[in-house]
């Protein structure tokens, strides 16, 4: 077994992803099968190989610091599931 149910629960918490009880075992089994397949990468000796995170040379892209048009407050808030005046509203984050 590559991955345990405890690990699935831990990873789901890291990802802020709720999983129903019945989803949990299915997810574990599917991840297990995929990770077993992925094990084939260990056939390759990569000790001397440099990683490729991007195929093009990545450098910082800088520009002049000039003011340009941006979204209005109303545009920025238009898709919010809940808003209060000029703010995004969320459930309480501090204990009372």
């Amino acid at each position: 077994m590559k991955i345990t149910r405890r690990e699935v629960e831990h990873v789901a918490r890291l990802a802020r992803l709720g999983l129903a009880d019945e989803e949990m075992e299915r997810m574990r089994a599917q991840l297990d099968a995929i990770l077993t397949y992925i094990d084939k990468l260990n056939q390759l000796d990569t000790r001397e190989i440099k990683p490729t995170s991007h195929v093009i040379p990545m450098t910082n892209v800088l520009r002049e610091d000039v003011v340009s048009p941006s979204l209005s407050q109303d545009q920025a808030l238009a898709n919010a599931p809940d808003r209060h005046e000029a703010f995004f509203r969320v459930p309480r984050i501090l204990e009372a």
């Binding site: 990468l41 260990n42 390759l44 990569t46 190989i49 440099k50 990683p51 490729t52 995170s53």
Partner: peptide
């Protein structure tokens, strides 16, 4: 990291 290294080989 392993995958990024194999990506180099594929490239």
């Amino acid at each position: 990291l392993k995958a990024l290294k194999v990506r180099t080989l594929i490239r």
